[in-house]
Simulated scan of single mutants.
Amino acid sequence: MNKPYKIPESVLVVIHTADLDVLLIERADKTGYWQSVTGSKDSLDEPFVETAVREVFEETGIVVSDAPGAVPLHHLTDWHLSNIYEIYPVWRHRYAPGVTKNTEHVFGLLVPRTIPITLAPREHVDHIWLPYREAADKCFSPSNAEAVLQLPKYLRRP
Rank of each mutant, 00 (worst) to 15 (best):
N2I: 03
N2G: 02
N2A: 06
N2V: 04
K3S: 09
K3P: 07
P4Y: 11
K6Y: 05
P8A: 08
P8I: 01
V11Q: 02
V11I: 09
L12V: 15
V13H: 10
V14P: 08
I15C: 04
T17H: 01
T17D: 07
D19V: 04
L20F: 12
L20R: 09
L20K: 09
D21H: 13
D21Y: 09
D21V: 09
L24S: 07
I25Q: 14
I25W: 03
E26S: 10
D29R: 08
D29H: 14
K30W: 07
Y33T: 15
W34N: 07
W34M: 11
Q35I: 12
S36I: 13
V37L: 00
T38R: 12
G39M: 06
G39N: 15
S40E: 10
D42A: 13
S43M: 08
S43H: 11
P47E: 07
F48D: 12
V49K: 05
E50K: 14
E50I: 07
V53C: 01
V53E: 01
V56H: 06
V56M: 01
F57V: 04
F57Y: 15
E59F: 02
G61K: 09
S65Q: 09
P68F: 10
P68A: 13
A70F: 04
A70D: 09
A70Q: 09
V71R: 05
L73I: 14
H74W: 14
H74P: 11
H75F: 12
L76S: 07
T77L: 06
T77M: 07
T77D: 06
T77V: 15
W79V: 05
W79L: 03
H80D: 08
L81R: 15
S82T: 13
N83A: 11
I84Y: 13
Y85I: 10
E86D: 12
E86P: 01
I87R: 01
Y88G: 12
Y88D: 15
P89K: 06
P89L: 02
R94L: 10
P97W: 04
G98F: 06
G98N: 08
K101W: 03
K101C: 03
T103P: 01
T103R: 15
E104N: 15
E104C: 15
H105Q: 10
H105C: 05
V106R: 03
V106G: 01
F107S: 05
F107Q: 08
G108L: 08
L109Q: 10
L110Q: 13
L110C: 12
V111N: 01
R113T: 10
R113V: 13
R113P: 04
I117C: 06
I117V: 13
T118H: 10
A120G: 00
A120Y: 06
A120M: 05
R122P: 04
H124F: 02
D126P: 02
D126V: 00
D126E: 11
H127P: 00
H127V: 02
I128Y: 02
I128C: 06
Y132W: 12
Y132N: 09
R133T: 11
A135F: 03
A136N: 04
D137S: 14
K138N: 03
C139G: 00
C139M: 08
S141K: 06
N144F: 01
N144T: 13
A145L: 02
L149I: 04
Q150R: 15
P152I: 11
K153T: 11
Y154A: 00
Y154P: 03
L155T: 09
R156W: 14
R156H: 14
R157C: 12
R157D: 15
